[in-house]
């Protein structure tokens, strides 16, 4: 599994499609859909928390993907809303665990990939 992270609109999906050779039909943002590229993990974490479940339990269903895309969140002032605080911390902790298991970790910055783990760096 390759974990692709970075801020909003930094080119995570465009890079993943170019790197993998897959087309957009092979991308999903729904955990129940079988596709090699799973995007919007941060949104899936939010829905999981809203259901009262532990996002860390998503891990086994993420490791089987070829690519997992997750926006880097938590780089702003601490949100006033407790649910927002819990969400960004849950996203951060899950991303740390995914990075431990991932073969490669790539961070997109202005469209440029920076390998944090494995790969071409």
């Amino acid at each position: 599994m390759i974990l692709v992270t970075g801020g909003a609109a930094q080119g995570k999906l465009a890079w993943t499609l170019a790197h993998s050779g897959y087309d957009p039909s092979q991308v999903t943002s729904r955990l129940e859909e079988d596709a090699p590229i799973l995007r919007n993990l941060e949104g899936i974490v939010r829905e999981t928390l809203d259901r009262g479940e532990d996002p860390m339990e998503l891990l086994p269903r993420l490791l089987g993907r070829e690519y997992v895309l997750c926006r880097e969140v938590g780089c702003g002032l601490v949100p006033v809303d407790p649910a927002d605080r819990a969400w960004r911390e849950a996203v951060g902790r899950l991303a740390c665990r995914l990075a431990e298991e991932a073969r490669e970790v790539v961070r997109l910055w202005c469209g440029l990939p920076v390998w944090l783990k494995g790969g071409e760096s």
């Binding site: 960004r88 996203v91 951060g92």
Partner: peptide
């Protein structure tokens, strides 16, 4: 050593 990151970044 200086280390900087967002919330729950490790």
């Amino acid at each position: 050593v200086y280390l900087e990151g967002g919330s729950a970044c490790g």
